[in-house]
Every structure is written in structure tokens, then in C-alpha cells.
Computed example of a mutant assay.
Amino acid sequence: MRAAYAVASDPTDPRSALRVGDRPDPEPPEGWVTVEVRAASLNQHDLWSLRGVGLPADRLPMILGCDAAGVDPDGNEVVIYPVVEDKADPRGLSLLSERHPGTLAERVAVPRENLVRKPAGLSFVDAACLPTAWLTAYHMLTTRGRVADASSVLVQGAGGGVATAAVVLAVAMGKRVYATSRDAGKRAKIAELGATAVEPGLRLPERVDVVIESVGAPTFEHSMKCCAPGARIVVCGATGGHLATVDLRRVFAMRLDILGSTMGTGAELTALLDLLVEKNVRPVVDSTYGFSAVADAFARLESGDIFGKVAVDLLH
């Protein structure tokens, strides 16, 4: 079967470690099934894997990809939840493509319990964009950020998958949403999504109840200054640097919660799918590539000039 996989690691030129070609068909163990993949999407996780982060040499070659939608052996259209229980991992779980072959292939083996029904109203490409970035944003907003109790949300660094998803979801939930970007073109696109777009570091018209933070050091001070009393700053990454300065006086004086967050549960993925159908919301897709152009999809992701998700359509 066709697959996109890592054959080495290269911290400085990750795409040099990428290959696209034939790999053996999956052999699912007991309790697992093989899904015919119809669409997949890329994440920064895939580039980190090619750099060797979390993917040591003894697991190579490894098929990449965490996210996909396809058809199960019974003919059902499904979305794949990418988190696998894994006793061999110190965390007790792993993502597809870390210890088990990933989704950037014509077929992938997954635990049957990881299959979530795809709503008829969502295309395979739309559904394939959801399991990592959009689920992460949903979990940050709902479970960690308790956005149901909030009126306003700040999303730092909108443009990438998680931050853009957070903007769309918070708007769909009826919140006042502010989002930052250094790029004027991205700020215009943020405004089209229903949020107020601002340059990084600028004062907001109000203090917010929830901050979605994935940038880290360059924006964290601004995130804290924008918080209302009792606000939650939810952190899922640090793309701009992980050594942020925290003014502890502001933390205790404003009674702030600083919360770490990763991914979400299978039940939350189902709830996310239901929300998108109910609100008639679709993921923001930056670009879609056929499988023969998957190397170009990786180049697009690595460019950093994306707005939304980079998807791979295996039907084209």
C-alpha cells in the first residue's frame, strides 16, 4: 500500500527524512481493525517525528500521521481517535505514528474502540482535520477552560491548526473572541471568522475569562495582562519558546488558573463532531493535496505560512 513514512531523523531538514512509497499492509492484532483511509491531515507532530522527537531510530521506518477518516470493515464511515493505550509508554498512552503505524497510508490498523462515527454532513477531508488540532482546542475550551462560564476568550497566535480551531469553536459557542497574529493577512482572515483580530501585545477592549495559549514565551506576559479576575490560561504548546516569565504577583492577586492541556477524549471527539453539525461549522482548511503530492503538503506545513489545516485527500 502507499504510505508516507519516516526513514531517519533530521533536526534541521526534517523533510529529507520523509519517503513516500510502498509499505506492507497492516496486520491488526486482536481487538484492532483495518480502516480504509479516505483522507488524512498533517500536524506539527509529523514534522517533529521527522526531526526525531519522540521517534527513536529503533522504531524506523514509521508511517506518519495521527489524523484520518475512512471506512471500517463493516462499511461504516468513521473518524479515527488517535490516542492508543500503551503500557510500554511512560505516559500510558501514545499517538498513532509514535509506536504504531500512522494514518498517512491507504490503510491503517487501530483499536476498534477508537472508531467514531462520521456524521453524514461532514466530508472525509473535513472529518480528517479534527482528531488532533480541533479536539485539542475543544478540550482546552470546554474541559480545561470551562468556557461555558465565560463571556470572552483570547486566542494567541491564530493561524495554526489549534489556534484557528479555538477561534472558530469559541465563536460558535457564542463567546466574544479576540485573536492575535503578527501577519496582517491572517488578521483579516481571523476577522472573517467572527473574531476581533489584534496585533500581538496590544491592549484589548476588555479583560477576558479564558486565554488559549500555544505560543509561549513571546505572548505569555500579554496573556496574563489580558486576564479578568479568576481567568483561566490554558496552555497546549510553546511554539515560540518554553521559558516564559510569570509574574506570580499577578497570578495570586488576580486568582488566575494556569492549566496545561493535551488532546482530549474519544467522548469529546464525538461531542465535537456533534457540535460542528449542530452549528453548521466546518474546519478551516488551508490547502488539500492528493496523496501523490504529500511531500508538497509537508513543505506547505513546514513553511509556517498556513491558516488552518493541511489535508491529504487519498481519493485524488
Rank of each mutant, 00 (worst) to 15 (best):
V208T: 08
G194P: 02
T136D: 15
A172C: 08
K118N: 14
A163C: 10
P205Q: 06
L204C: 06
T142K: 08
A163Y: 03
R117N: 12
R99K: 11
R99E: 13
R146G: 14
R107H: 15
L154S: 07
S181Q: 06
V198G: 02
S151F: 06
A109F: 11
A170C: 10
Q156P: 07
T164S: 12
R112G: 09
V155T: 07
S94N: 10
V198C: 07
A179M: 11
T196I: 11
D149N: 07
R117F: 02
A163G: 13
C129V: 12
T196E: 15
S97Y: 10
V155I: 15
V108D: 14
V110R: 04
L141R: 01
G157V: 10
L130M: 09
D183Y: 00
G157C: 11
V110A: 06
A179Y: 02
Y178C: 08
L96Q: 08
P101N: 10
G201H: 01
L104Y: 10
A179N: 06
L115V: 08
L202F: 04
R117D: 15
E206G: 05
V171W: 01
V171E: 12
V153P: 03
S151E: 15
L115T: 09
A148F: 04
R203S: 15
L122G: 08
F124K: 04
L96W: 09
A148H: 05
C129M: 13
M140R: 01
V155M: 06
T196P: 03
E98R: 03
V162H: 00
A105H: 11
V168N: 04
V208R: 00
V147F: 05
E206Q: 03
T132M: 14
L104R: 03
A188S: 11
T103Y: 10
G194F: 00
N114M: 06
W134F: 10
D149Y: 01
V177W: 04
A166Y: 01
H139L: 13
L115C: 09
D126S: 05
H139M: 10
A195Q: 02
V147A: 11
L130S: 08
L96I: 13
V147M: 09
A184D: 15
R203D: 15
P200Q: 02
R107T: 15
A137G: 07
A158V: 07
E199V: 04
A148L: 08
L122A: 08
A184C: 02
V167F: 03
G201Y: 01
L141Q: 07
G174R: 03
T196H: 04
G145I: 09
S181A: 12
S151G: 15
V198E: 12
R146M: 14
